[in-house]
Amino acid sequence: MAQDQGDSSTLEYTAEGADACLACHDENGEVPVMDIFKTPHAVPGDARTPFAQHQCESCHGPGAEHGKRLRFNQERPPIPAFGDNALWSKQKQNGICLDCHQRDQRMHWDGGTHERQDVACMDCHQVHVSEDPVTVARREAEVCSDCHRDVQVESHQMSSHPMRFGDMACSDCHQPHGSLNTAMLKEPTLNDSCYSCHADKRGPFLWEHAPVADDCTNCHSPHGSNHPALLKQRPPLLCQSCHSRIGHPSISRTPDDLPGGRASAFLLGGSCLNCHSKVHGSNHPSGANLSR
């Protein structure tokens, strides 16, 4: 919630550019910086990059005041952006990144969940490293879980998407830079997100199961579950949450239905799915009860 301090227009750039900065900030400093020269930001041949412009000060702001010679006992003034006690607010610092990185889904940054929660670009991204971890699919979840630990732990449950192995990244479904949709999803709807990888569930089927087309999360917990197939509950109770027709759907299943008792197929194995296996819909002409 830092407030902007100082008038940008009165700040001056150093005369020496990066040479002035690198005189103090090098690989042995508190924050090693030299790996930036291995990154796309340090390509002078690309006129859009910081090192084709004011070099370090393209992002950190005019640094003449910060880099000036100090009198005895004088405290060094802070750099305007991206440093300890930075003069500029998070919003303004984010604006520095967004000045260049504003295409695609970043167009929805303003008013998005992360923007409203005061998340800064630098909370997730590292610029002075050869490879920013959050941009590497196999390492992305490590960064997201710094704040979303409750989501990360769900990947250790009985069934989960392959997030903890790095084979699936959070950004395969979510757009952290802003989205207009529920849960910052990339696709226009939640089901479109699921159908990206599970197009076989998309139908449209002759015999639809309405809650499927309505919302996959009616039955599934996408980040992990204590039940198979990411289900929210076990059948038959999951199915009995919506079905209570005369006959077997309305019958309570009790421990008497376990092996040693009735060993009931209405409970054991896949329960309702032992017969009604086409729960996502059926295209069989005789599949109205989703068993073909």
Binding site: E16, K38, F51, H54, Q55
Partner: peptide, 17 residues
Amino acid sequence: DDATEECEACAFDWEPR
């Protein structure tokens, strides 16, 4: 480009790595 030429401490890395 001028700014780059003036930067002596910049350790640009143009080799495969």
